[in-house]
């Protein structure tokens, strides 16, 4: 079957990009040495250190983030029945930023520089605040959307919530010291490189749990596409699934945003690209499909942002936007209007 071939091709290219992401960078490391470093074989000590402690967690982060943000976007598009919904559009990333800002600034007030056990606790605190921040915004947007009938209004409301949280973050910045602001600004550019093994130990299980959880909602999400009455008619508890989708989206988008910064456009563009490639709206195929496509695309964006052979690194957001924005423009132009864009 054509689709099986596509999936196989997808897995192969993901694996190839995963290796390539570890080969390329400011220092190019030959593929045999990357392989040797991964297997614990014989290679240069410095290369081994770079591969195991920088490039491997970075590539893994790109996969988790690509898969997670894409699924979060897909869930929001189905939840809001809105083809342009996504973590960066509806203010969910902003909500996570607010959580992160509050946590970072608050912990700077109460703790001395964190080390060891504190660092571990700090990571969990970061995640929890980011999740709570995203959930707060997502719930508010959902409540507003229940009173609004057209999708444009919902997007605008989401955008406004984004501005509100954004301005609160700016106000918080005004009262904090310059070094923290510098860190915060760098964080907002988005980067896969900020996740070391200590962070990975926290991020990977949470994101994996979110991804597995998202696979449980295929039925309900398909039914929701027919409208809430049809969904209720086939035994879906509509308010419960709405809540479940909000929680899952917040866990995925919140956690990932906390560690990689807000990654723009992946959440909107990848589900559309997947629909286009696999020619279906069936979530049984779309959910795993979006994970795979998202991982592939974010790995590619990460490789490009490293500017192979150069010392400088571009912010990953500029690359994802360069890729994502044209996809979205294309989708809107193709369908002439937004309502049809689920096709």
């Amino acid at each position: 079957m054509n689709r099986t071939l596509l999936v196989l091709l997808g897995f192969l290219s993901m694996f190839a990009l995963f290796i390539l992401d570890m080969v390329l960078g400011s220092v190019s490391i030959p593929i045999e040495d990357v392989w040797a470093a991964l297997k614990g074989g014989d290679t240069k000590k410095s290369w081994q250190y770079i591969v195991l402690n920088f490039r491997l967690p970075k590539a893994l982060t790109a996969i988790l983030c690509g898969a997670g943000i894409s699924v979060a976007g897909l869930q929001m598009q189905t939840l809001f029945k809105n083809p342009l919904a996504g973590p960066s559009v509806l203010g969910i990333s902003h909500g996570a930023s607010l959580g992160v800002a509050v946590f970072v600034l608050a912990s700077a007030l109460f703790y001395q520089p964190m080390t060891g056990v504190h660092e571990m606790l700090g990571n969990w605190g970061l995640i929890i605040f980011a999740i709570l921040g995203s959930m707060l915004v997502l719930m508010s947007v959902l409540l507003a959307s229940l009173r609004l009938s057209d999708s444009i209004s919902v997007l605008l409301v989401g955008l406004m919530f984004g501005f509100i949280t954004g301005s609160i973050v700016s106000i918080l910045q005004y009262f904090s010291d310059p070094e923290l602001i510098q860190n915060f600004l760098v964080w907002t550019f988005g980067s896969m490189a900020g996740v070391a093994w200590t962070e990975m130990k926290v991020m990977a299980p949470v994101v994996t749990a979110g991804l597995i959880l998202s696979l449980m909602f295929q039925k309900q999400m398909n039914a929701l596409l027919l409208g809430e009455h049809y969904a209720a008619g086939v035994g879906v508890n509509v308010s419960r699934i709405r809540m479940a989708l909000i929680v899952t989206t917040s866990i995925l988008a919140g956690t990932l945003t906390a560690f990689t910064g807000p990654v723009a456009f992946i959440g909107i563009a990848v589900p559309h690209l997947t629909r286009l490639l696999l020619k279906t709206s069936d979530h049984k195929i779309l959910i795993p499909g979006s994970m795979l496509t998202g991982a592939i695309i974010l790995l590619s964006c990460d490789i490009i942002s490293q500017l192979p052979g150069q010392q400088a690194t571009l912010p990953i957001n500029s690359i994802t936007a360069l890729f994502g924005a044209p996809v979205i423009i294309g989708i809107i132009m193709k369908n002439r209007r937004m309502k049809g864009a689920f096709a």
Binding site: L225, L226, G227, H229, Y230, K339, G340, F342, A343
Partner: peptide
Amino acid sequence: SLVLTDKIQAGAFSVKD
């Protein structure tokens, strides 16, 4: 089981889906 007047927009479903 219900058959409603609600318009269905989700376009990339096959009939079997």
